[in-house]
Design a protein around this nucleic acid. Structure first.
Length: 467
DNA sequence: TTTTGAGTTGTTCGA
DNA sequence: GTCGAACAACTCAAA
């Protein structure tokens, strides 16, 4: 009998453990492990700068776990796969499915072509706990509200999430020797020094993803439900970029958290994984979610689209410290704490009256965890035009939010050094501080920290009226 | 088919 | 200072 040669195509599953496609390929014989940077089918969803940076290091880490035998390609997967199949007499092509609409389309087409060539095609689910097509209401249509989706659809009605797998035991890997077989051909690192800065904040790759989960279980989860609201503290998992690139699977996380003593903290964290599922679920059933308002009546909304407001927002120079701290955290670290994402999002949409697309695009470029499903869902939610969105009158007040969730000012002062010496009483509204206090703190409004670019009350009423 | 209750994360105002 | 109502009306899910 001829031995079996399988291509395992790594896409957003950059790990060896709990990798159903890689596991089964390895069980059956020799494997050609490949990564393809697809710059042909992506259309407008080319990776953002922060994502590319992360991907570069994640690939290096994966390459190391594979003993240096990861094969790199750039171009159209169809052509690359066909060349490889012919060259190595490949029997089967395996991959773990991705759920972005453009990937679904590409992969359906690819599967057809490979099957016609007589090649075995095996695809697996390695990134979702529940398949979007399995969870439906009794009338056969998709859910649009989170709670019934999660409770009735997933927890009660759904199939239990797949159990995680170990690393495959015997690896027989085929590596294509050539000069340009290195991650550098993908050209992922930014030309400027922006990437350098990010290095301080992240440890990338499969092992670090597992370590991050471990330390979250040891500390953050114990006060997750309350603590997750405080951006200055470490109660959130920061697993999102690891999950996005598949350095760790939601299944393993689900399994580990479920095995802990069940309480309000573990349940709340599991429901956050449920929210991630819900974003993918909606993206699957409503593939235009990244572009179009899920509620059509918002199409008529009169956005202001003032470019100078957008510039100020991006740079963290709106004059509202909690907003600015968030935007500078994004620039500095490639990440924003979830509570602050809502604050800066609400501010962009409901105080600056900018279209949520602006915010989504900036996040897409800057976030190391940029994810089409979560990002478009999140922005639609905060804008109020999503399936199960915030009511129009839910407009975050950046002063109150700061006072409430950054009580000691630790978070805000970490990113706004110019306000370091301002007493907490005025930290979230420096323009209200008496001159003597500003002087003493070395804050000169309009010089080293901006005046507020919009009036809260006024812009809030403007938004309410527009809604 | 009709009815009923609910819908992640908020703020403001006035008693 | 605290508390409840109002901020609108609609859509969704399930009985």
């Amino acid at each position: 009998m001829n031995k079996k040669i399988t291509i395992h195509w790594f896409i957003q599953d950059l790990r060896l453990h709990d990798n159903p496609s890689f596991y089964s390929a390895s069980e059956e014989g020799e494997v050609i492990p490949i990564f393809i940077l697809d710059n042909v089918n992506t259309q407008k969803y080319q990776l953002g700068s922060a994502s590319k940076w992360w991907l570069h290091y994640s690939l290096l880490s994966l390459q190391k776990s594979l003993g240096g035998k990861l094969n790199y390609f750039i171009g159209d997967p169809k052509e690359i796969l066909i060349k490889l199949i012919d060259k190595y007499k490949v029997t089967a092509v395996n991959w773990n499915r991705c759920y972005e609409p453009w990937q679904i389309k590409r992969d359906e087409n690819l599967r057809k072509i490979l099957l016609e060539k007589g090649i075995e095609v095996n695809t697996y689910n390695s990134s979702l706990l529940w398949e979007p097509w399995d969870i439906l209401k009794s009338d056969g249509t998709p859910y649009k509200v989170f709670t019934p989706f999660y409770k009735n659809g997933c927890l009660v009605g759904g199939i239990s999430p797949r159990k995680s797998l170990s690393k495959p035991k015997n690896l027989q890997l085929i590596f294509q020797q050539s000069n340009d077989n290195s991650v550098s051909i993908l050209n992922l690192l930014p030309k400027n020094n922006w990437g350098k800065k990010l290095e301080k904040y992240w440890k990338i790759g499969e092992k670090n993803a597992l370590d991050t989960l471990k330390s979250f279980i040891e500390s953050g989860i114990k006060n997750y439900k309350e603590g997750r609201n405080f951006p200055g503290e470490n109660f959130v998992s920061t697993l999102s970029p690891h999950i996005h690139f598949g350095e760790i699977s939601p299944n393993l996380i689900w399994e580990k958290i479920s095995s802990l003593h069940s309480d309000e903290n573990t349940n709340h964290f599991l429901s956050e994984l449920g929210w991630r599922e819900f974003s993918y679920y909606l993206l699957y059933h409503f593939p235009h979610m990244p572009e179009k308002n899920l509620q059509k009546k918002f199409d008529k909304f009169s956005w202001q689209n003032n470019k100078s407001y957008f510039e100020a927002w991006k740079k963290g120079k709106t004059g509202y410290p909690i907003v600015d701290a968030g935007m500078r955290q994004l620039w500095e670290t490639g990440y924003i704490h979830n509570r602050v994402r809502m604050i800066v999002g609400s501010f962009l949409v409901k105080n600056l009256l900018l279209h949520w697309h602006y915010g989504a695009e900036w996040f897409w470029d800057c976030l190391v965890d940029a994810d089409l499903a979560s990002n478009s869902f999140g922005w639609q939610w905060i804008a109020g035009c999503g399936a199960d969105a915030a009511p129009y009158f839910r407009i975050f007040n950046p002063i109150i939010q700061g006072e409430k969730f950054d009580v000691d000012g630790k978070y805000t002062k970490r990113y706004l050094l110019e306000l370091e010496n301002l007493p907490n009483k005025y930290l979230f509204c420096p323009w209200k501080a008496p001159k003597a206090i500003l002087d003493k703190a070395g804050v000169i409004l309009g010089v080293n920290y901006p005046y507020p670019i919009v009036d809260l009350k006024e812009s809030r009423n403007l938004a309410l009226k527009a809604y």
